[in-house]
Structure formats: structure tokens, C-alpha cells
Design a protein around this nucleic acid. Sequence first.
DNA 1: CACCATTTGTTCGTATGTATG
DNA 2: GCATACATACGAACAAATGGT
Lengths: 80, 80
Amino acid sequence: MTIDPDGVKAPYRQLADILRERIISGEIQPGRRIPSQTELEQEFPLSRNTIKKALDVLKDEGLLVSAPGRGLFVAEQPDT
Amino acid sequence: MTIDPDGVKAPYRQLADILRERIISGEIQPGRRIPSQTELEQEFPLSRNTIKKALDVLKDEGLLVSAPGRGLFVAEQPDT
DNA sequence: CACCATTTGTTCGTATGTATG
DNA sequence: GCATACATACGAACAAATGGT
């Protein structure tokens, strides 16, 4: 998956969609850490601020839990 | 204080007036940090751009000094 | 204990595009 | 055309937490 800067959806929403898919599909297991913002910055042509904005979306959705100093982890219980 | 979107004065000018009053009245002491643009965004129904525009007015007036990465501070010497 | 690298969080500065009156 | 307002994006700097040396 790649980001289209000229797509209808804003890049940060596109990235959120990509990462959400990786989580829901099970590509990244619950409790596992996802790539750091710096690593995502290398994988996608976006600034760290934009990366973080996408991650904030997923945190709001309850898919990710942050651990400052350690990283971002896939939530254990996305549903209840 | 609140912002009136339909007021005679543009919202960013209204906000500048409100914040100027807080500074001149001493509600926010010289050298002290003012609420971040994000916090002001929560307090007032304006976009960050508009918030910033109001703050730029106060910076131009010499009431505020910016410290990138830290915040905006009330100037020590509003006058000279 | 000190030091440092990594990582997330926060903040301001600047710029572009879009929309409205 | 201009002023105003919002959404988005990138850059930079600083802070705090963590973990290793």
C-alpha cells in the first residue's frame, strides 16, 4: 500500500486505513508493538506529525494503546 | 468571554481582545506561558489558524513572545 | 548513580488548498 | 480581488518516559 498525496482522502486518513487493515487482518497481533513513528516515516513519504495524526486516529478508535518511551501497541481488546 | 462569529469584529480580533485583556489585567503574569494554541482551540470555537492569527496580533503588539517547542509567553516588558 | 539512545508527546512556525462573503 | 476561516501537511525544537550501558 502506498499513499497518494493527491487522493480524495487526506494522506493521514489513508495511512490510518492502511494500518487499521494490518491490525484487523491480524498482520499485527494484539499486544504486539507496531513500527515506531520514525520507522513509519521511512516506510511512508509523510512527516512524523502526519504519521502521528494517523496513529491518533487509531488510538481514538481503541485499536492502539500508547506507551511513551516504549512504543505503540495493538490493543488487546478492540471490542468489548 | 465568548466569540461571536456574527459580530462586527472578526473572530480573530475578538480573541485578540480577550487575550489582551487577560494579559493587561494581570490574569496572566509576565514571563508566564499562555495556554497553547491547542488549548485555546478547545476553549474557543475557532480553528488553530484563527487562534494563531489572534496570537500574531498580540506578538506584533509586543505583548507575547514565542518560544518554538515550548510555547508563547507574556512579554516581560510590554512597553519600552 | 550518570549517561545516552529510542520513542512518544507537545508545541510553534510555515505553507498550501479550499470555501465563503 | 480581498479578507476571513478551516483542513491539511511539513519542519523544527523541546519535553518526558523508558531502557540499556
